[in-house]
């Protein structure tokens, strides 16, 4: 009976704390660009923000909802509140929780698993923060090197570097989905060069086309 009460109190406090702290953290994160803007006397362009947010939201809001629905059962309540704030969910938090589950031999959905997953995610987030802080402290004296003119081509090509690596990973994983969008987008950019500077617009039809092809292949059991 006493254990039941402890569990109920624990669950209620996780939701209370989770909601309050997430609201406060979101406020802080949103405030950062405004504080920086105020410091330098500049304001964000509202029209550019809306334009950019529409494109980003179209891709990432549905993705966030899918991730929330899929990962919450694995992460538990406390683990979810922390993971969705501290990020790197698939590449770090989920593997850490699964590793701890193995060690502690807990079953998903039990209070023991809830406690183990919350502890794992909290420790993981703290360790990541400490590692990055140590790295940032080491990076500060390297600033003159990182800002050297000779390194400009590296930082100006960081996005092609990202999509080259990601492209290989995803195209190899799903060649049937990738072939048509890749061919069409390449042809479009070759024959309508004005589209080259409009990649943020291009990715909407490209993403939609890949989704439709993926869905058709899925329905026909071809994936």
């Amino acid at each position: 009976m006493n254990k039941e009460k402890t569990i109920q109190q624990y669950n209620a406090s996780l939701h209370f704390l989770g909601r309050i702290t997430l609201i406060m953290a979101s406020g802080l994160l949103i405030a950062v660009p405004f504080i920086i803007g105020a410091f330098y006397g500049v304001e964000p362009s509202i029209s550019s923000f809306i334009n950019g947010f529409m494109k980003v939201g179209m891709i990432y809001i549905p993705m966030s909802i899918v991730e929330f629905l899929i990962y919450t059962p694995m992460l538990g309540v406390g683990g979810s509140y922390l993971s969705f704030l501290t990020g790197n969910v698939t590449n770090m938090k989920i593997p850490v929780v699964m590793n701890s589950k193995e060690i502690a031999q807990t079953e998903s959905g039990t209070i023991e698993h809830e406690i183990i997953s919350t502890i794992s995610v909290a420790v993981s987030a703290i360790v990541t923060t400490l590692v990055i802080v140590a790295g940032v402290i080491l990076l500060v004296p390297l600033q003159p090197v990182l800002q050297n003119e000779a390194l400009l081509p590296a930082f100006n090509n960081v996005v092609p570097a990202l999509f080259g690596a990601l492209g290989l990973k995803y195209f190899v994983k799903s060649p049937k989905i990738a072939a048509v969008p890749l061919l069409l987008m390449s042809l479009l950019c070759v024959f309508v060069p004005s589209m080259i500077s409009q990649t943020s617009v291009l990715l909407i039809p490209s993403g939609a086309l890949a989704l439709v092809i993926g869905f058709v292949l899925y329905k026909k059991n071809l994936l």
């Binding site: 899918v66 999509f163 492209g167 989905i177 987008m185 890949a210 869905f215």
Partner: peptide
Amino acid sequence: FGAHATTAMFVGLCAAFIGSYIG
């Protein structure tokens, strides 16, 4: 289809960017 949808979305993203580099 959820897991495949995320992959498809990333395939679309990569196709748009790689296409622009080819152009």
